[in-house]
C-alpha cells in the first residue's frame, strides 16, 4: 500500500556547538580574535533517515537526553539540521510544555495569535473560540495573562488550541505530563476520536501505555541514534531493556536537558 509521505528525512543530524566561555559579545570576540573559543560538540541527533506516511501516529521513545526533543524540533523546522534534508508536506505544529504562547498575553490573545499562526482566519477563530475555552476549562481566566497560569493550565490551553485549530502534522512532546487526571482523560479521548484521523502525529512520551495504545509505529532512540523504527511492542521492549541495563533499579534518568518526568 502506498500512502502519501508526510515527512521524509534523509540523513539528518544535529550537532550543537556549546562554547564553554561566553563568546557572544562583540567585545569578547574582538579581544579573543586569535584565541578561538573552546567548544564542545554535542551530537544530539546522529545521522538518520526515515519516512513517515500521512495519517500515521508515530511514537518516539528513549531515555532522557537521547535526542527525542531535538529530533522533534528538527522535523518541525524549529532547528535547522546540521546535515541532511527534511521534507514536510503540510502545516506543522509543535506542542511542548510552555512553548508557543506568550506569557505577556492573555489566554484570549494567545488563542487568536496561535490559531492565526496555524493558518486560521479571524472569523474561523471566532467560530472555534468557545470550544477552545471550553475544552481547556479556562472560562474564568480568558482575560488573564498566561504568566499567572499554572503549568497545567498553560498546557491545557496549548493542547486545546492544537486540538481545535490543528495542523496537518502534529508533534506532541510530553503533552500529557502536566495535566490533571481529568484533563488527561479528555486528551486521550481526543486521541481516540476522529480528530486524529487524517493527521500525522508524532508523539513523544514516557508513558508506555499511551504509546502502546495509539502509535502505529514507534521509534526508539538511544544516545542520538535511531536504534529502531517499527513495531510499537518491539520498540517498547527495547526501551525497557535499555532502562533495566543502564539504570539502577527504580530510577532511570541521566542528567539531560530538562524534560518532563511522567511516571504513572
Amino acid at each position: 500500500m502506498q500512502t502519501p509521505i508526510a515527512i521524509r528525512a534523509e540523513n539528518i543530524s544535529k550537532t550543537f556547538h556549546i562554547s564553554e566561555d561566553s563568546h557572544n559579545t562583540v567585545k569578547h570576540r574582538l579581544f579573543n580574535l586569535f584565541n578561538p573559543p573552546r567548544r564542545r560538540q554535542l551530537e544530539a541527533v546522529k545521522p538518520m533517515s526515515f519516512e513517515i506516511g500521512k495519517g500515521e501516529c508515530i511514537g518516539l521513545i528513549g531515555r532522557n537526553g537521547c535526542g527525542k526533543s531535538t529530533l522533534v524540533k528538527l522535523l518541525a523546522g524549529v532547528y535547522p539540521a546540521t546535515t541532511g534534508k527534511i521534507e514536510t508536506n503540510g502545516t506543522t505544529l509543535l506542542l511542548q510544555l510552555g512553548i508557543g504562547m506568550s506569557h505577556e498575553l492573555t489566554a484570549r490573545e494567545n488563542i487568536y495569535v496561535s490559531s492565526s499562526v496555524l493558518g486560521l482566519r479571524v472569523k474561523e477563530i471566532d467560530a472555534i473560540f468557545e470550544s477552545i475555552v471550553e475544552f481547556a476549562e479556562l472560562r474564568e481566566f480568558v482575560d488573564t495573562k498566561i504568566k499567572y497560569f499554572s503549568s497545567g493550565m498553560a498546557a491545557r490551553l496549548g493542547f486545546s488550541i492544537a486540538v481545535n485549530a490543528g495542523a496537518d502534522i502534529m508533534f506532541l512532546d510530553e503533552i500529557f505530563a502536566v495535566g490533571d487526571l481529568k484533563f488527561q482523560e479528555k486528551a486521550e479521548a481526543v486521541l481516540e476520536s476522529s480528530w486524529i484521523r487524517g493527521r500525522t502525529v508524532i508523539m513523544v512520551s514516557h508513558t508506555m501505555s499511551t504509546i502502546e495504545k495509539y502509535c502505529h509505529r514507534t521509534a526508539y532512540l538511544s544516545q542520538g541514534n535511531l536504534v529502531f523504527l517499527g513495531d510499537t511492542t518491539e520498540a517498547i521492549r527495547l526501551y525497557l531493556r535499555d532502562n533495566e541495563q543502564l539504570a539502577p533499579p527504580g530510577e532511570g534518568s541521566l542528567s539531560g536537558p530538562p524534560a518532563m518526568f511522567a511516571r504513572r
Partner: peptide, 8 residues
C-alpha cells in the same frame, strides 16, 4: 513564542 512551534 511565535516561531518556535510552527514554521511561521
Amino acid at each position: 513564542y511565535l516561531y518556535e512551534y510552527s514554521n511561521m
